[in-house]
């Protein structure tokens, strides 16, 4: 029993970081309804950002978060204005192909810049704390993952407030519902889409910078995260930022509880099985608004 509870706790911690991985996609795909198959590659760039920061500048990889967020916000905007804006009005296929192209471009650029070697972030606060556990009611909580989870939660809530409670967020929602009506009140849809892409890229790259403390960075690291993010956003429901958080926690827990009973290879199978099940029973997602 404790074993299961322990797995649930671990899963919740991991789920918080997954939430940050998924929330960038929750904006681009869930809210603005645009496809991005290079989502995981933006995460990969964030990982390399943290790695470069810690090895070249000898600073804590966590300090890479603000610059990574800033640079990747610009990269996201650029991806929209240079690429996605041109394929936005056409078939969804155009968006799929454009972002698959982006996927190869980013991955191969990373190979050219960093080679395909596995890179490990070392010497940061989180790695120095590794092995330290907090004990509570017979359960132990790894301190590094707890810090990472808390960081993810804070960023997540900031985004939630931005989208749900500010007028800028209302304008994003209005644009996603009805571009023409948005223009009639003076909202510039292209600006909204560009900022949405900037936010999406920044958030997933920050998730990457955090994850770099736990996983090796290499150019092909991204794709599994893309798949995971799509599953979480669809599970949580379109247009629902908090739904994304809950779905991410669920995925984290399902993964880690599965591992208690079955070989690790099954953990993703169970995540996608529950995704398929919910897709059948509740196609709008668990908490979807539309």
């Amino acid at each position: 029993m404790t074993l299961v509870l322990q797995a649930v706790v671990n899963g919740l911690e991991m789920g918080l970081v997954y939430a940050l991985v998924a929330v960038g996609l929750a904006i681009i795909w869930g809210l603005m309804e645009m496809i991005n198959f290079a989502h995981g590659e933006l995460l990969m760039l964030g990982m390399f950002g943290a790695w470069w920061f810690s090895t070249t500048l000898h600073l804590d990889p966590l300090l890479a978060i603000p610059p990574v967020a800033l640079v990747m916000f610009g990269v996201g905007r650029l991806i929209y204005t240079l690429l996605m804006r041109r394929v936005q009005r056409g078939e969804t296929f155009a968006q799929i192909f454009a972002t698959i192209g982006l996927f190869f471009f980013l991955q191969n650029s990373a190979v050219a810049a960093f080679t395909s070697d596995y890179r490990f972030v070392e010497g940061g606060l989180l790695s120095r704390l590794s092995g330290i556990n907090l004990h509570l009611a017979g359960l132990s909580v790894g301190l590094p993952l707890l810090i990472a989870g808390a960081l993810a939660l804070v960023l997540f809530l900031a985004l939630y407030l931005l989208v749900e409670r500010t007028e800028f967020g209302l304008a994003l929602q209005a644009t996603s519902e009805d571009r023409e009506a948005a223009m009639l009140v003076g909202i510039r849809p292209q600006r909204m889409f560009a900022v949405a892409w900037g936010l999406g890229a920044a958030l997933v790259a920050v998730a990457g910078a955090i994850l770099a403390n736990f996983f090796a960075a290499y150019p092909q690291v991204g794709f599994p995260f893309t798949v995971l993010a799509y599953a979480i956003v669809a599970l949580g429901g379109f247009g629902s930022i908090l739904g994304t958080l809950l779905a991410a926690l669920l995925v984290g827990v399902v993964q880690s509880v599965t591992v208690v009973y079955l070989p690790p290879a099954f953990k993703d199978a169970f995540v996608f099985a529950s995704y398929l099940l919910i897709g059948l029973l509740r196609p709008q997602g668990l908490f979807g608004k539309f």
């Binding site: 007028e167 209302l170 009805d178 023409e180 009506a181």
Partner: peptide
């Protein structure tokens, strides 16, 4: 200003939020 055919409200937002967006360019 144009009140479009079929109203085209922001249906997921509240009445007050729709009005706030009506004044989007004048804060």
């Amino acid at each position: 200003a144009l009140v479009p055919e079929g109203r085209r409200l922001f249906s997921r937002l509240t009445v007050a939020e729709n009005l706030a967006l009506g004044a989007f360019t004048n804060a």
